[in-house]
């Protein structure tokens, strides 16, 4: 292509030979810097050194504990004899506790499946990204929806007599509802709670129920999955 001619006339008429560059400037964009990132440090050596120290401390702690604590080993597996009670690994005991209350399709498939899906979709919901306080607009509609969901959940847990889930749910919903009806009270803790978004309430509820169920499954269940007190 004749380079000289191009600079003189700008563009040739054949778009295949001289593709045009067009810049679109849409609304809400500009070339301005997004924000000040603040002071920065070089990863090497500052970050690497800290990570190395963490690795060292962690390894030392693990080795020390491993020297004094023995991994459990029971009898040789016997398919003919179920130990009583037969417990899953501790992190699945919450799930096993659910299996005690609900039919397996609900406790074993539906609930864990929903938890995983819920975790994955968290970042793709506008309400979670925005993170506005739960009662930001003091909207009655939201309070209505909230109450309906809570009542449905409570009825569901009540039907299956899952009181160890029913009570924490009731308490959590009660606290969340109280922050709606008592604006400006409760001191710093009240102010803190009122600023929490919906996702915070759901996640906190999930963590509390999960911890309670795991704890019950670990220490409060004996032969035949009956209730026992760990100190007896």
């Amino acid at each position: 292509m004749d380079e000289k001619k191009k600079t003189e006339t700008g563009f040739g008429s054949d778009a295949l030979k001289d593709p045009r560059r067009i810049v679109f400037i849409t609304k809400k964009t500009s070339a301005k810097v997004k924000g000040d990132v603040g002071r920065q440090a070089m990863s090497y050596p500052k970050l690497i050194l800290r990570e190395a120290i963490v690795l060292e401390i962690l390894t030392i702690l693990m080795v020390v504990v491993a020297l004094f604590w023995d991994a459990p080993l029971e009898q040789l597996a016997n398919p003919l004899l179920t130990p009583n009670p037969a417990k899953a690994p501790w992190y699945f005991l919450g799930l096993q506790e659910l299996l005690h209350y609900f039919p397996p399709i609900v406790a074993g498939v539906l609930i864990p499946g929903l938890v995983i899906v819920a975790l994955i979709v968290i970042p793709y919901f506008h309400v979670n990204v925005e993170g506005a306080p739960l009662w930001a607009n003091s909207s009655l509609r939201r309070l209505g929806m909230f109450s309906v969901v809570v009542v449905v959940l409570l009825i569901f847990f009540g039907i299956y007599q899952a009181w160890t889930i029913f009570i924490p749910t009731l308490v959590m919903a009660g606290v969340a509802g109280t922050t709606y009806f008592l604006p400006g009270q409760g001191g710093r803790f009240g102010t803190y709670l009122r600023a929490r978004p919906l996702s915070w309430w759901i996640m906190t509820w999930f963590i509390i129920v999960a911890i309670i169920l795991t704890e019950i499954g670990t220490h409060f269940r004996g032969p035949g999955w009956s209730w026992v007190w760990p100190w007896r």
Binding site: T82, N84, P85, A86, L99, H100, P223, G224, W225, S226
Partner: peptide
């Protein structure tokens, strides 16, 4: 006079 399961009661 019952058959009982040790796992989930």
């Amino acid at each position: 006079e019952m058959i009982a399961c040790p796992c989930h009661g």
